[in-house]
């Protein structure tokens, strides 16, 4: 299944690994920040309503 990347295996694999890690980290951080901001706002709105 794995293609034969020959002498360029390091270059190709490291490009994919670095990029995927960065993209996954970006998505994870965005989701986390969204969840946190929503919870914070909910708390304030609940407090305001009493």
């Amino acid at each position: 299944m794995m293609p034969d990347l020959g002498k360029y295996a390091d270059a190709v694999l490291s490009s994919y690994i670095v990029s995927i890690i960065l993209l996954v980290a970006l998505v994870a951080m965005s989701l986390r920040a969204s969840k946190k901001a929503r919870a914070e706002l909910q708390k304030l709105e609940d407090r305001r309503r009493g």
């Binding site: 993209l23 998505v27 965005s30 901001a37 706002l41 304030l44």
Partner: peptide
């Protein structure tokens, strides 16, 4: 498409934060 999804998500987060700081200031 990933960019569009992230911009929707992150802009919504910024709106939540802006609303939260307005409520805090009012408090």
């Amino acid at each position: 498409l990933l960019f569009i999804a992230l911009v929707f998500l992150r802009t919504r987060t910024e709106i939540y934060k802006r609303r939260a700081s307005a409520l805090l200031a009012r408090e």
